[in-house]
Computed example of a mutant assay.
Amino acid sequence: MFVVTGTGTETALEAKKLQANVYVAMRYWYPFTEEAVHQWIKHTPPPKYLQVRMEDSYLSRLPVSIIKSWYQRQGYINSMANLIEKELQSFAKPKEVMIFFSAHGVPITYVEDAGDPYRDQMEECISLIMQELKARGIGNNHTVAYQSRVGPVQWLKPYTEEVLVELGQKVVKNMLAVPVSCVSERIETLEETDMEYKELALESGIENWGRVPALGCTSSFISDLADAVIEALPKILPKIQPKRACRDIP
């Protein structure tokens, strides 16, 4: 799915009059970041006069723009709100549905000791989505929890499985799950949410369960990704003029 998202972004960039090659890289699965860099080098090799051993130096001097986050972009917020609004209509009584944001968790030490802004950004993201829904006249109650914890260490709380049981005991009957931190379908959505959490919710007293699909290649989302790329491009690219190595002339 990420590869398809990359292809979609490249197509969206072309539609916005920007010719660019898009490469997909991941930290823990294929294609790994190193593979994506090598693929880029293969398609965009350094000047021929640069020796192979100078390749790293050449890459280190290329201009780079980094999109640090995009959870707060209006295009992304609108895309999420569109999906939620659509899925609410599948319930007999849309206004009575609890919107349940389930975000992927991380060990709490990442946030409290290492200073990772993930929790603050996730909560701000959810707040922005709910503000957009409210502007559309959708005032449903909502809550947030964190899923996918593994191992003995403490992760971000509250935990999804505990909140589901608690809400079921509080006589919440209609629930719409939103995998807010997953932009593509994966094991956390297809198995953990659709199977394990749904079963737990129904066992806990929740009668009607729904789930918002991941954004995937939603056109408004892909278009906004392309806009983010265009906005992040440096306006003036410095010229790279590596010095040639001097050599004696026989």
Score class of each variant (00 low, 15 high):
Leu156Gly: 06
Ile249Arg: 08
Lys235Gln: 14
Gln147Ala: 03
Leu225Tyr: 11
Gln131Trp: 04
Ala214Tyr: 09
Pro250His: 04
Gln72Asn: 09
Ile77Ala: 01
Asp227Ile: 11
Lys48Ser: 15
Val180Gly: 08
Ser220Leu: 08
Glu188Ala: 07
Lys17Thr: 06
Val183Cys: 10
Ile236Ser: 15
Met122Thr: 14
Ile126Asn: 02
Gly139Lys: 04
Gln147Ser: 09
Leu200Met: 10
Leu225Val: 12
Gly151Val: 06
Glu203Phe: 12
Val172Ser: 01
Ile126Trp: 11
Ser90Phe: 05
Glu161Pro: 01
Glu185Met: 08
Gln51Val: 08
Lys243Gly: 06
Lys95Gly: 00
Lys42Glu: 04
Cys125Ser: 15
Glu191Leu: 05
Val144His: 03
Ser79Ala: 15
Tyr71Val: 06
Asp224Asn: 14
Met98Gly: 00
Ile77Ser: 05
Leu164Phe: 08
Leu13Cys: 06
Val150Thr: 10
Glu87Thr: 03
Cys182Tyr: 08
Leu13Ala: 00
Gln51Met: 11
Val37Arg: 13
Ile187Pro: 08
Gln147Gly: 09
Ala25His: 08
Ser223Ala: 05
Leu62Met: 12
Val3Arg: 15
Ser65Asp: 09
Glu203Ala: 15
Glu185Gly: 02
Ile129His: 01
Ser127Asp: 12
Asp120Ala: 04
Ala12Val: 07
Ala245Lys: 07
Val37Glu: 08
Pro46Thr: 03
Lys173Thr: 03
Gln169Arg: 14
Tyr30His: 15
Glu123Ile: 14
Arg119Ser: 04
Gln39Gly: 13
Cys246Ile: 04
Gln121Met: 14
Thr44Ala: 04
Ser223Asn: 14
Gly105Cys: 09
Leu200Arg: 13
Thr160His: 01
Val183Thr: 13
Ala135Glu: 09
Pro242Ile: 07
Val97Ser: 03
Cys217Pro: 04
Glu112His: 07
Leu83Asp: 02
Val64His: 02
Ser57Pro: 03
Gly168Glu: 13
Gln147Glu: 14
Pro47Ser: 03
Glu85Pro: 03
Phe91Ala: 06
Glu10Ala: 10
Asn21Asp: 15
Ala245Gly: 04
Glu166Tyr: 10
Leu50Glu: 11
Met98Arg: 12
Val97His: 09
Val178Glu: 06
Asp116Pro: 02
Glu55Ser: 09
Tyr110Asp: 15
Glu35Cys: 03
Lys16Gln: 15
His104Leu: 03
Pro117Thr: 11
Lys170Glu: 06
Gly210Gln: 00
Arg247Cys: 07
Glu96His: 10
Lys93Asn: 10
Ile129Arg: 09
Glu35Met: 07
Ala20Cys: 12
Met80Val: 09
Thr218Phe: 05
Gly75Leu: 02
Asn78Leu: 01
Thr160Gln: 12
Glu207Pro: 00
Asn78Cys: 01
Arg247Asp: 11
Pro94Thr: 09
Glu231Met: 02
Asp56Leu: 12
Ile67Ser: 08
Arg186Trp: 04
